[in-house]
Design a protein around this nucleic acid. Structure first.
Lengths: 345, 345
DNA sequence: GTCTTGACTGACAGCGCTGACATTCTGCCG
DNA sequence: CGGCAGAATGTCAGCGCTGTCAGTCAAGAC
């Protein structure tokens, strides 16, 4: 049982190490101008007393907050995983993560932002889509001079560092997978329009279809907004069509799950009569039967990098390096059993 | 476009309102001894300058942090919803929520706790199960004199306030629902042993079965640890048994989803050949077909109350009121189409 | 009128730390 | 061996706020 972390102050450490409190401060902040043996002595004292700097005092004196904000639209699977990746990275550097949900549609966003930015003096903010492209949020942050890292943004990529995967290529690969299985009539469910990935996934789909001379029936392209219930509606429309698709490419796993649910209501056997692909490899992908063929995003890794960007560069002081970093991480096609050859091929 | 929240200090407000900074401080902290018109004048100045107190300074001077910790084992659906409820309540009182994940199994829990408790001076911590009953976590918190609110704890209920639903009764109701449909052979999937709800749900099941003189076959009681993949194994064992159940009561929705997946592999039609119930009404409950009959917990409300307990009572100063609050919120039976009459009845 | 009381307000130190600057030390050159 | 640059360390004010305690003021008792 380790002792209770008591309120040891920097002065007590200084006394024990026989240096001034300023030197302890230097050691704590990894400043270079400390002789090696002095540093060692201080470190020993810190260890011995189990010293933990008082964040409030530190922040007050240096005008820092040690806080990184993670803003998202609404919590979900994606958030949980992202969050733990970011928290982990933050913890390594004595920083902390503050998750805040902003209601994008509501008119209160501006007020919420004011409160958040006024109260906390965030050292950086990570924006999850669709916030990554929300003009008003971006403006506020810019006006408050708070560095931003955008996840899967849609446009204006030089404004701030961004992190994402190559949605376009992933979508082409997934489409190719379906085409190679023998599908020709493939339905497509679009995600939310304000989401950066939505367009890329659609373009990848279209281009791959074209490359294989497969026709894209406009009646088989429906908008599901990444939502399960909307996906149900889309799927129903597609399946009711005179010439229903043999496969559906849903832009995320929730909608794919919806397609599968609807297929069951239509009494279709899967994947024989209908193949379905998702996107994201969310938990639901493996909680349904058949399990979803999908694309896995390295969400935790993206989170780590996002936090790291803010922690490493201290952009609040130095600004972002030029050119502004743009990370495109590798994705992975995960082929499970929601896709197969169309029956009769 | 609202102006950028600038760094207005308490002194500027004081000057404008023609009072001392201390009086502004009194107003900010809702202290009683301020004359009504003075208060109004100060409030006007605060409004006019868009003053936001500096949390670091406030915290340093008053030895507070304005931070509430939310500790959980691993992120998941439950967390997301809980988190937003808690954040909302915190925001109302200028408090903030810090989510931290602790790896319960790992040996690092103690070190993690030390770091967390030393760094932040949390004003309270909300513990999600199974952390609500983790001895070492509880000890550390107790030693550091940090007030705790436990969600769905298992034992030792007078130690700290707790919030939950009546898992026992809910389980009885769910069991009754199955029995009333005509099921007699019902399988049961247990959750994690360190989870408080696990035992209650099991007891509720058992007691209701007994009350109806329905036999409980020990081969049909399996431990799935609340995990989908374990649920798959449990379901398989049950379905392979010489006399398979006509219904399965899974202690959470993930395992219920697993039961349904496995039933599909066995080619069973649902709910005709197998009824399945879940628990929690997690997102997955309505993302599969058939949709799950389950029990809805008022997760967001629980979160609100938890945060409120800490914010209202400032237990760090005053301690908890006696007797220690114990909130049992109402649950709701949600009957969907994963349950039905057994075929042949 | 004066005195007392309690309601209200203000002065001021100091929370624990770091930034700016001052001072001391060290090694090395001439 | 003095002198000097630069490395290492120290001094001290002050970040913005609140706790403590002292002071002021109005109203009622005498």
């Amino acid at each position: 049982m380790t002792p209770i972390p008591a309120s040891v102050t920097i002065q007590e450490v200084a006394d024990l190490a026989q240096v001034s409190s300023k030197t302890v401060s230097r050691v704590m902040n990894n400043e270079p101008l400390v002789r090696a043996d002095t540093r060692k002595r201080v470190l020993a004292a810190i260890e011995q007393l189990n010293y933990r700097p008082n964040l409030n005092a530190r922040g007050l004196a240096s005008n820092r907050s040690f806080l990184i904000g993670l803003f998202c639209d609404r919590p979900g699977d994606y958030l949980s995983e992202f969050q733990s990746g970011a928290i982990e990275r933050c913890r390594e550097s004595y920083m902390h993560l503050m998750v805040e949900t902003l209601d994008v549609r509501g008119p209160k966003v501006d007020k919420q932002m004011d409160t958040l930015l006024g109260q906390l003096r965030l050292e950086g903010v990570i924006l999850l889509p669709p916030l990554s492209d929300h003009p008003s949020v971006l403006n506020k942050l810019h006006a408050a001079a708070i560095p931003v890292v955008r996840i899967a943004p849609k446009s204006n990529l030089s404004a701030a560092p961004s992190i994402g995967i190559d949605d376009y290529t992933a979508a082409r690969q997934l489409t190719a997978h379906l085409l190679n299985l023998g599908h020709r009539r493939i339905g497509f469910m679009l995600g939310r329009a304000d989401h950066g990935a939505t367009e890329q996934r659609y373009l990848g789909f279209i281009d791959e279809m074209r490359a294989h001379q497969a026709p894209v029936d406009s009646g088989l392209v429906q908008t599901g907004n990444f939502i399960f219930s909307d996906g149900l509606v889309c799927a129903e429309r597609m399946l009711r069509s005179a010439t229903p698709p043999t496969a559906i490419f849903a832009s995320n796993d929730d909608m794919a799950a919806a397609a599968i649910s609807m297929a069951r209501k239509f009494g279709l056997s899967l994947p024989g009569q209908l193949s379905v692909t998702g996107f994201d490899d969310a938990p639901v992908a493996t909680m349904i039967w058949p399990e979803l063929t999908t694309v896995r995003q390295p969400v935790a890794a993206m989170a780590r990098i996002a936090a790291d960007l803010i922690i490493q560069h201290e952009p609040r002081r130095h600004g972002w390096p030029e050119p502004v970093p743009r990370h495109l991480l590798g994705h992975e096609l995960v082929i499970r059993n929601s896709t197969g050859r169309p029956s009769g091929v």
